[in-house]
């Protein structure tokens, strides 16, 4: 399972880098989203995967297993997702505003306005 996820993470990073290098801002944002998902998965895997062995259990009903899952990476991912969500929303709004002002979403056109 870890190996499968490692491959998925690698693919997501590769796709993210590819999209980051495109000229369109929409693709740039998609690339950053891929990056962020890849990173979240990386944290998830780095905590170790243990199938069906919860950390928390009710008293006496099902005792904590001998090799429980670490809940902390999941808490970290949740935080990272929330932050990523807020920032993506901001970036999309920024892109929309940029499109309204300049009428383009091509990053190469950015250069022209730089020195003015």
């Amino acid at each position: 399972m870890e190996i499968l996820l490692a491959i998925v993470i690698g693919l997501l990073y590769a796709a993210g880098v590819y999209l980051l290098l495109r000229r369109s801002i929409v693709k740039l944002i998609l690339g950053i989203m891929f990056f962020s998902h890849a990173t979240n998965l990386l944290i998830f895997v780095s905590g170790g995967l243990h199938k069906g062995q919860p950390q928390f259990a009710n008293d006496g009903i099902n005792a904590v297993s001998s090799n429980p899952t670490d809940p902390l990476p999941q808490a970290l991912i949740l935080t990272a997702i929330v932050i990523g969500f807020g920032i993506t929303a901001f970036f999309l709004a920024l892109m929309y505003r940029f499109y309204q002002v300049t009428g383009t979403e091509d990053l190469d056109d950015l250069k022209e306005g730089e020195n003015k």
């Binding site: 740039l28 990056f35 962020s36 990173t39 944290i43 895997v45 902390l72 970036f91």
Partner: peptide, 23 residues
């Protein structure tokens, strides 16, 4: 746009570093 995108990428590097270190 340059500022935001570059800084987001750097945050994600930071986050990946945290994940690996925690692992």
């Amino acid at each position: 746009i340059k500022y935001v995108s570059i800084n987001l990428v750097s945050s994600l590097f930071f986050l990946a570093g945290i994940g690996l270190l925690y692992g």
